[in-house]
Design a protein around this nucleic acid. Structure first.
Lengths: 210, 210
DNA sequence: TGTTGTGAATCTCTTCACAGCT
DNA sequence: AGCTGTGAAGAGATTCACAACA
């Protein structure tokens, strides 16, 4: 199966499996069964086996899957050897949370630049990351490869920032603003809509018994 | 159709429609067609009509849907009249981002308490919200209704906090830690896994042409 | 015996297609 | 003419069930 046409849900779960494999290895276990991997990740064993089948990974019928081998297969499938290069636009509480989270912690997920319009932040280094002016976004990123642009600005600036990111040839967008971005469909957008999640959870809580 | 068994995806979209209806109304439009609502929310017109059908909302075959009427129907379906009561555990950058985002802005989504273990934060008011010690979480929340508990602590504390929230009878959990929580299945958990999203987007960016 | 790998069945969600209305 | 409402078809994701195997 071509990597491009893997089910979206499968891709997401594979990343979760990958994380679980790292944990399992650091616990000193070298092999794992599909039902164990499923337990940790919240998936059924059949689901795990089917997902792994789709990327061509194979297990052993007595010992299950070899953690290290499987981890390497997933890493090469996901091209982990090359870093993911991100920029963060908006260095408020949320932007800083993202910066501090990724700085140092996730070696292969690198924040290469931050942007804000607050002059007290521009040209300073925040959580180890240089902050540029949002107005200079396009010129700053000229000729620079950026995989992911993170939008962490107030809601009403999100669309404007998204368009800047598109013009700067940023390939995908992680959008924290509760706004549906109108941009070309070839740019993959993922929405992290905290308001929506809280509303949804609030609803589930209200209709739950007892 | 019973509200409890509405498709998860439909519930999510209905909240998005609700937001779009508010925007439409404040733009001074009083009616909207399913294809317009779909455009704004990124759904097809059939999808919109089917979703609205499931909650029993009806439109007019000449003028489409009455925004205000529809908004009220959604509000009553989602029981918006009663507030969603949340607590935020962890008042680092992320926790503060959540606090400042909800404080004042979303009247029906109320943060009723914050928790942290840092003694410089405990017993202070942060972004308008009183901060208590995490160790006192259960006693502080005794007898208090909480719909949503937000976990914004470092990864390795997440499971511990989740168990405290469950013991405090918090009904649902919004978990920002990239960790699969092991808690009773009747507690609805929503994961906001920024790392996972960035990994996924990074992958899509890497395999995209050009 | 207990596992993987996988076709087939099932379940869920989305889109099609069109009748019915205004 | 252009919309809504909806049965039916289609697509997509998950689970079942079991053969093959160590």
């Amino acid at each position: 199966m071509n990597e491009t046409q893997l089910p979206h849900n499968t891709i997401e779960r594979l990343f979760v499996y990958r994380r679980a494999l790292q944990d399992t290895l650091s616990d000193g276990k070298s092999n794992i069964f599909s039902h164990e991997l499923g337990n940790v990740c919240g998936a059924s064993s059949e689901q795990v086996r089917r997902d792994l089948m789709l990327v061509g990974a194979e297990g052993n019928r007595r010992t299950g899957y070899d953690c290290l081998k499987l981890l390497c297969e997933l890493n090469s499938f996901f091209k982990i050897e090359s870093d993911v290069r991100m920029v963060v636009v908006g260095v408020g509480n949320l932007g800083r949370a993202v910066l501090s989270y990724f700085m140092g912690k996730q070696p292969h997920l690198r924040v290469v630049a931050a942007f804000d319009n607050d002059s007290s932040k521009v040209n300073r280094v925040i959580h180890g990351c240089h902050c540029y002016a949002i107005d200079d976004l396009e010129s700053t990123l000229e000729g620079i490869l950026v995989h992911v642009g993170v939008i962490a600005v107030p809601d009403n600036y999100a669309q404007d920032v998204a368009e800047k990111l598109v013009r700067a040839k940023v390939k995908t967008i992680l959008n924290f603003a509760p706004v549906r971005l109108r941009i070309p469909s070839e740019i993959h957008v993922e929405n992290m809509d905290v308001t929506l999640s809280v509303e949804k959870l609030g609803f589930f809580a209200k209709i739950s018994k007892s």
